[in-house]
Structure formats: C-alpha cells, structure tokens
C-alpha cells in the first residue's frame, strides 16, 4: 500500500526509536487507523485531499505519540535494568569481596541507587496519577553525592578513598577515621547530608501513603522499610554529632536490615513492572 509522503513522515516520526519488531506492528496499526479515518471522511463527501488532511489531523502530534510509545515500549528494558540493579545490591556482601577498592564499590553502589530511584520514579509517575516523588528522590540523590564528596574530604586522604562501609545506602558513618578526629565543620556537614538522605526516604514513604495498591500490593511493607531506613539514617547522623558509638552501631544494623528489605521489595516491584504477564500467570 502506498501512502502520501506526509503520512509516511508522520509514521516515521511516530515510530522513531522503537525496537524493530514493535515498530513494524505500530506502523501497521497506525496506518490502518489513518486509512479507516480517511475512508470515512471520503465516504462522507470530503475530497481526497481534505479527507487526507482530516485523517492526519485526527492522529495528532507525531512527536507526542512517539514519546508516549517509547515510554511504553522501552519501559520494560528500564525495569529489567532496575531489577538487575536491585538484585545486585542485595549481593553487596559478595560483590564487596570482589571489589578491593572502596571507591569502586561506592561508585557501583551509587549507580545502582540512581538506576533504582529513577526507575521507581518513572514507575510511580506512569502508574499513579500525581504523587509528587521528585523532591524526595532528588534529595536522596543530591545528598548521596554530597555525602560521598564530604566523606572523601573528611578522610583527608585523597589517594586512598576512605574505607567507606557501603551497604545499601552509601553509609559512611562507621569508618574509623571519623572517630579519631575531632568534630570539624566537615563532619557536621557530613552528618547533615546523611540526615537529609534519611529525610528523603521518610518523605518518599510519606508521599506514597494513601496511594492505592495499583503499583504495588506490598506498599505498606515498602513504605515501612523506607521510613525505617530514613529514621535509621537520621539517628545515625545525630549519633555522629553526639559521638555515641553504641547508638550508632545499633542504628547501622537497623539501616542494614531495613535497607535490605527495601531492596528486596524494589526487586519484586521491578520484576512485576517488567514482566506483568508472568506475574499474572504466577498469581493465577
């Protein structure tokens, strides 16, 4: 079937960036839609050129269609990647054994965190109407980066990256150099950024409260894990400022457990988002 040139351009734009197999299906579907609209207008008395223009106008903006199609069809890749990141973060102990460099381990942990948080935000925005999760996620991301920079400065050892205990979050407090040094402005800033990461998790949990279960049936557990991580991090920041080692050790344990539960739930969430059919069959 031959199409007018501007229809071909419209279809090319609308299907740009899609995987080849999907592109062919969408191309066929949209061109059939155009043909139906054209036939109807033409049968209704319009001239061929008017019917063509009206049918094309009915389809709307090709770029908006392309963006929405990419969001739909490329989302699975993103969720598979986030699933992999979540599973990998659960294996942090094993992974840690392979990374002799704390800097490398930190970089990997940060990449995992960013992939997960961004995928989570997209998932929430795509499936729920208007929960504003951008602010808490941005808080966690920015403060995580700041924490790492400050930890680097606080260790005062630019050659060997501080022996940071990278758990689920870039949890920097337990490394011994900090305890041997007196409390400096850098340490106070460090405690502030860790506290803000905790606040970010608390806010994220709060924003998800009251949303229905369309995204995730275990949301109560996820929200609980997020909030516990948040509280643990805020408490850790305070215990750093107060130089309370016992409290810190307890809170580290809380953060590790809550963070591990959170990562496991993230993995489940991304699995369900990436493979909705398998999930449906499994439940059936």
């Amino acid at each position: 079937m031959s199409f007018p040139l501007d229809l071909c351009a419209w279809l090319r734009t609308a299907t740009r960036g899609l995987p080849r197999a999907i592109k062919a299906v969408v191309y066929e579907e949209l061109s059939a839609h155009y043909q139906d609209a054209y036939d109807e207008h033409h049968a209704g008395g319009m001239s061929a050129s008017d019917a063509h223009r009206a049918a094309l106008a009915q389809l709307g903006d090709a770029r908006a269609t392309a963006q929405a199609l990419r969001e739909t069809h490329l989302a699975q890749r993103r969720y598979v990647l986030a699933l992999g990141a979540s599973l990998a973060s659960l294996l942090w102990v094993v992974m840690g054994a392979f990374f002799t460099s704390a800097m490398m381990l930190t970089i990997v942990a940060v990449v995992w965190l960013f992939i997960m948080l961004r995928s989570f935000r997209r998932l929430i925005e795509a499936r729920l109407d208007a929960p504003n999760v951008r602010l808490p996620i941005a808080m966690i991301e920015v403060c995580t980066l700041l924490t790492i920079v400050l930890a680097f400065v606080a260790a005062q050892n630019p050659i060997d990256f501080p022996s940071v205990l990278v758990v689920i979050d870039p949890f920097i407090l337990p490394y011994p150099q900090l305890w041997e040094q007196s409390l400096t402005p850098i340490h106070i800033l460090l405690a502030a950024t860790v506290g803000l990461i905790g606040l970010g998790w608390l806010l994220l949990g709060e924003r998800l409260m009251g949303q229905d279960a369309r995204v995730f049936r275990l949301r109560t557990l996820l929200i609980g894990a997020m909030m516990l991580t948040g509280l643990g991090l805020i408490g850790s920041a305070l215990s750093l400022l107060l130089r309370n080692v016992t409290a810190l050790q307890t809170l580290v344990l809380v953060v590790v457990i809550a963070g591990t539960v959170r990562q496991a739930l993230f993995a489940l969430l991304f699995f369900r988002a990436a493979y909705p059919h398998r999930d449906t069959k499994a439940r059936a």
Binding site: G60, L69, P276
Partner: peptide
C-alpha cells in the same frame, strides 16, 4: 475529544499489564 495517535501507547500499556 483526543488525538487518536495517543490511543495506541495506552492500548499497548494495558496489554503489557495483561
């Protein structure tokens, strides 16, 4: 009223969700 091209991403999304 809506631009009909936007129907397909929604259809495909519903299909992905089963």
């Amino acid at each position: 009223d809506f631009k009909e091209g936007t129907l397909y991403p929604t259809l495909h999304n519903l299909e992905q969700q089963g």
